[in-house]
C-alpha cells in the first residue's frame, strides 16, 4: 500500500516538474523575444494572444506538425539519441532544485545530501548531447560546432565548479535545502569574496549553456546553426527545450547558492525564488542582446587565464576567512 502511494507521489512530482519545465521554457522563449524586441525598439510577437503570450504555444504546435527529416548520411543511432541527451540531464537536475515551500510542504523533489555534487555531475552530461549531434549529423558545420562545444564546456566547468565550491564551503553542506537555510541571516552575495564567486559563476554558466557572448558552438555567422544545423521539427525543439531548461537551471542555481534561494521578506518563498531566478535570466538576456560573440581562442584564453586563476584565488581567500 505504502509503495503504491510513493509511486503515485513520484508520478505526480515527475508530472509537476515536467509540466513546470515545459511551461517555463515556453514562457522564457516568449520573454526572450519580448526583451530582445524592446531592446531593439520593436514590439516582438503581438498577434497570438495578449502581446503574443501564446506565440510559443503556436510555435510548439508548428514544430510538432513538422515533417521529421532525417538526412541521408547521418549516423542514425547517434543522431537520434542526441536530442534526448541534451534534454534529459537538464530535466534530471530539477530533482534537487529547492523551489521553497508552499503550505508547509517543501517544494523539492528530493533533498539529496549530495545535491550540489549531483547537479555538477549532470550538467556535465549535456555536452555529450551536443557533441553527439555534431558528430552524428555528418556535416562539417555541425562537427566544428560540436568540437568547439566540447572544448568550451570542459574548460568552463572548472571555474564554475570552483565558484560553487566556495558557496558550499560557506554553507558547510552539499544539500541544496541546507545551503538555502544557511543564508537565513545574510545572503552569500553580500560578502565580497562571494560576490566575486557569483560573478565567476554567472559568467562561466553563460558559457556552459552556450549563450552569447559565448555561443560559439552555434555561431550563426560562421557555422550557420552549429551542432543543430541538420535538425528540424521536434528534434530541434528538444535542443531548444534543453537550452532554455539549462538557462533556468543555472539561474536557479545562482539564486540558490548566492542570492539566498527562496528566502526573503513579506512575499511567499516560491515567489521569491521565481523572482530571483527570472531576474538573473533577464540580465542574461540583456547581456545576450548587447554583446558580440568572442572568438574560440579568446574564449579558451578567458577561461584558463582569467576565470580559473581568479576562481582559485577566491577559493583560497574563502578558506582563509573560514579558518580565521
Amino acid at each position: 500500500m505504502v509503495s503504491i502511494l510513493t509511486f503515485i507521489i513520484m508520478i505526480a512530482v515527475g508530472a509537476a516538474v515536467l509540466g513546470f519545465i515545459a511551461v517555463s521554457a515556453m514562457f522564457l522563449i516568449w520573454w526572450e523575444r519580448k526583451v530582445s524586441a524592446h531592446i531593439q525598439t520593436r514590439y516582438g510577437p503581438m498577434r497570438v494572444g495578449w502581446h503574443g503570450v501564446l506565440q510559443s504555444v503556436a510555435d510548439v504546435i508548428k514544430l510538432l506538425l513538422k515533417e521529421n527529416i532525417v538526412p541521408e548520411d547521418v549516423d542514425k543511432p547517434i543522431w537520434w539519441l542526441a536530442p534526448f541527451f541534451a534534454v534529459v540531464p537538464s530535466v534530471m537536475v530539477f530533482v534537487c532544485i529547492p523551489f521553497g515551500n508552499l503550505f508547509g510542504i517543501d517544494l523539492i523533489a528530493r533533498d539529496l545530501n549530495i545535491g550540489i555534487l549531483y547537479i555538477m555531475a549532470l550538467t556535465s552530461i549535456s555536452v555529450l548531447g551536443i557533441f553527439m549531434a555534431g558528430w552524428g549529423s555528418n556535416n562539417k558545420y555541425s562537427l566544428l560546432g560540436g568540437m568547439r562545444s566540447a572544448a568550451q564546456i570542459v574548460s568552463y566547468e572548472v571555474p564554475m565548479i570552483i565558484s560553487m565550491v566556495t558557496a558550499v564551503m560557506f554553507a558547510g553542506t552539499l544539500s541544496m535545502q541546507k545551503i538555502v537555510e544557511a543564508q537565513r541571516g545574510m545572503w552569500f552575495i553580500f560578502q565580497p569574496n562571494m560576490a566575486v564567486a557569483f560573478l565567476i559563476f554567472v559568467i562561466s554558466a553563460t558559457a556552459e549553456i552556450n549563450r552569447t557572448p559565448f555561443d560559439i558552438p552555434e555561431a550563426e555567422s560562421e557555422l550557420v546553426a552549429g551542432f543543430h544545423t541538420e535538425y528540424s521539427g521536434m528534434k530541434f525543439a528538444m535542443f531548444f527545450l534543453g537550452e532554455y531548461t539549462n538557462l533556468f537551471i543555472v539561474s536557479a542555481l545562482a539564486a540558490t547558492l548566492f542570492l539566498g534561494g527562496w528566502q526573503g521578506p513579506f512575499l511567499p518563498p516560491v515567489l521569491w525564488f521565481l523572482i530571483k531566478t527570472y531576474g538573473i535570466i533577464t540580465v542574461l538576456m540583456w547581456v545576450r542582446w548587447t554583446f558580440p560573440r568572442v572568438r574560440v581562442d579568446q574564449l579558451m584564453g578567458f577561461a584558463w587565464k582569467v576565470l580559473t586563476p581568479i576562481a582559485f584565488a577566491n577559493l583560497a581567500v574563502a578558506g582563509w576567512i573560514l579558518l580565521k
Binding site: S36, I39, Q40, T41, T212, A219
Partner: peptide, 17 residues
C-alpha cells in the same frame, strides 16, 4: 559588420532605425 561578429541583431536594428 557587428551582426557578423555575433551581436545578435541589436546594432543592426539601431543602424536601420
Amino acid at each position: 559588420f557587428a551582426q557578423d561578429l555575433g551581436a545578435f541583431a541589436t546594432p543592426l536594428f539601431y543602424g536601420f532605425r
